[in-house]
Design a protein around this nucleic acid. Structure first.
Lengths: 397, 397
DNA sequence: GCACTTTCGCAACAGCGTTGCCAAAGTGGA
DNA sequence: TCCACTTTGGCAACGCTGTTGCGAAAGTGC
């Protein structure tokens, strides 16, 4: 990913040599330390929200000295990313000055390309959705048509910023870039699509570079479930922060986004999270993937027959396998099918996980199951976070 | 983990403040940069083995400048961890000086506590086993007896070092510590056992602290499968280095150790890798864990009936689920049952994975399946790596 | 009104990797 | 045999990082 534009480079400092050559482990230099700590502080500022956070709290949370925090925050204030926001009550001495993030200092566009729908949002540093567009879309209409639809929508959501708008989006000073999330296998590292399920004409298409060139800003591409998981990791469930959780998406298909120790796990081939074709019934009914007894077939079959309880139970068994394998903290459910009967799925999956936990003894207790917040916008918001998260020290994207 | 003894503290430098307070993300200071880069260089030295590696190669691989590498290696040489080892052929100028690790500069003890057997090894910095002891063991014989057996064996393997041996092991200058691996649920972070399967009397026993006090050196405790995975990640399969793989252990039970992006994934409760109780047959035969249709029941049942091919197939299906979920690079098989018919299991599991890969298209190709090297010593060697790996920049342990 | 506590910035500092420069140690052509 | 050239790698000065020492600012409480 190339993020060398001047606008939102919080880490202006020196121009360091390329930190890593050839994929090996990277040596750390001082510029890296600086950007790491700056990102850490920015992240804490964001998490503090409107309430803000004092310099000393930042020092305690990061392990840095108060003086280092003062220097870092001074830079951030000079660059417009942070600002003072009142002061706390005194505890016998000088009251702490509260700092807060300036959300308008940075924005990112997030686009969710679904099979029949396009949803584009503009998100600020805080994660707040500033603008949104929705349109019908035919993923099979060809690259040119889809690209144009995405660009038009992106221009639309950015228009309100009034920061000067030229050919692409490159005139928008605070814009970090555009994140795109879509189904189907793809290569996240290079931003190249593989055979998007049902649309073979996309195979090998370099979506990231095409978009970046067309819009004149950095672009990132990821699977829809990964984007959703990232969005939820950043500002979603409170207890999911920094931990591990799975986002299970039940819509036209069944997939998962995995967050392990606070960052999205994609695997070397962006193949992780293939949850739907997990086999849970040996020699079971044939799935369109060629396997037998996949969760997807069993679960969606039950849905089609109207047996929501059975669908939830099957989903729960597969979720239980996942929880056991990865020792996950929370399971979040999303997607259109879940949205149609949220309580039933939460209850059904929860029961299976609860029974499993009870059998295994008390250690750790049962894994909570919840409906993922943000509803139909999860993926689009997460796509925007593909650009924003790195600013805040998330290793993703 | 407490590793403040002077002997093998490669990072002698300044005494930095505690880097992190309260479990949050840690701010980086200069001492951290130094130890990070030092560990990186040490790791590359170890991977280079007897052939050694030149300063400039180190610079290229780490992304550091040659001068920085020179400084770091000068320190390492002064401390006895590295030494010059000849020189390369000239390519038109001054020939490169080859550096190599001095294996004898550090040792670690690794202990594998199995239900009926104790195996203790002494490993040097290179990962080479310097000494080994094996003894019968009854895990149910009570804490005192087991502790004494471990300590006696540890003293035994260390005796040959002739570095002065007092009450415990604290007199051995080059000894980093003792790593212990055993089955059953436990808390890796605190080194406390939970209900070791079949031996309820161990529940809550603080094994790590008990051993550390008794021996006078740092101790680390982990699950046997995690230790094996770490050992394989460090010096095992070549193509597993830095990547992701699963070690599947088929013995009296069925478990897995997961390595994701080069480091062992344990989960917050050290619960990850519960592979055996993955359900792959809805409403299948009852497992002793209370679930129905677990791989363990199906697989071990087939083994008991002498149907090795069926056992391998079932194992392959479960491995396929795991591979799909995590996008893993390699599957390594180990354990007594596998050792009895290695080719059959490799073939059987490989066929299932191959069929799965073929159905999903060409992207990435099929995941290789191999027998884990090192045989019955994997776990003990991995246990020693619990102490050594951190020296080389592995985030584990 | 004064002593005390707490926050936080300025200035000096130590330590990290980096840069500039040069000696060392080879090769290869004249 | 000599000399120009290339490449390695150490020494010294440097810039930048977070850290430490100290003092001003801004409250509380007797």
């Amino acid at each position: 990913m190339d993020r060398t534009r001047e606008t939102v480079k919080a880490t202006a400092g020196t121009a360091p040599r390329p930190a890593t050559r050839g994929g090996g482990p990277a040596g750390a230099n001082l510029g890296l330390v600086r950007s790491h700590n700056t990102a850490l502080v920015l992240g804490l500022l964001r998490d503090a929200g409107a309430e803000g956070i004092s310099r000393l709290e930042l020092a305690e949370r990061t392990g840095l000295t108060p003086q280092a925090v003062s220097k870092i925050t001074a830079r951030l204030r000079a660059e417009g990313f942070a600002a003072e926001a009142g002061r706390r009550a005194s505890t016998g001495g000088k009251p702490r000055t509260v700092l807060r993030l300036v959300p308008e200092a940075g924005h990112a566009v997030g686009a969710h390309l679904d099979r029949d729908e396009l949803r584009v949002v503009l998100v600020d540093l805080d994660g707040t959705v500033v603008a949104e567009r929705r349109a019908d879309l035919d993923l099979g209409a060809g690259a040119e048509a889809v690209l144009e639809a995405v660009c038009a929508a992106a221009r639309g959501v950015v228009a309100g910023l009034d920061e000067g708008l030229g050919e692409g989006l490159s005139g928008v000073r605070s814009l970090v870039g555009v994140g795109v999330a879509l189904p189907g296998p793809l290569d996240h590292a290079h931003g190249v699509l593989h055979r998007v399920t049902g649309f073979p004409e996309w195979d090998g298409f370099p979506l990231r570079d095409a978009l970046a060139e067309r819009l004149g800003v950095p672009a990132v591409v990821d699977k829809d479930t990964n984007a959703a998981a990232l969005g939820l990791a950043v500002g979603g469930a409170e207890d999911a922060a920094g931990g591990s959780f799975a986002y299970l998406h039940l819509g036209t298909g069944l997939g998962a986004g995995l967050v392990i120790d606070g960052s999205v796990h994609r695997g070397a081939r962006t193949g992780a999270g293939e949850f739907g074709h997990q086999v849970i019934q040996l020699d079971g009914p044939l799935c369109e993937c060629g396997n037998r007894g996949c969760v997807e077939v069993l679960c969606l079959g039950a849905v089609a027959r109207g047996e929501v309880a059975e669908a939830a139970r099957v989903l729960g068994v597969a979720a239980g396998n996942l929880v056991g394998l990865l020792d996950i903290d929370v399971v979040l459910l999303g997607g259109r099918t879940v949205a149609a009967a949220p309580e039933a799925y939460v209850r059904g999956v929860g029961e299976v996980l609860g029974a499993r936990a009870r059998r295994e003894g008390t250690s750790g207790g049962t894994v909570p199951v919840r409906v993922a917040p943000r509803g139909e916008r999860v993926v689009a918001e997460g796509a925007a976070q593909l650009l924003l998260a790195p600013l805040f020290g998330r290793g993703d994207a």
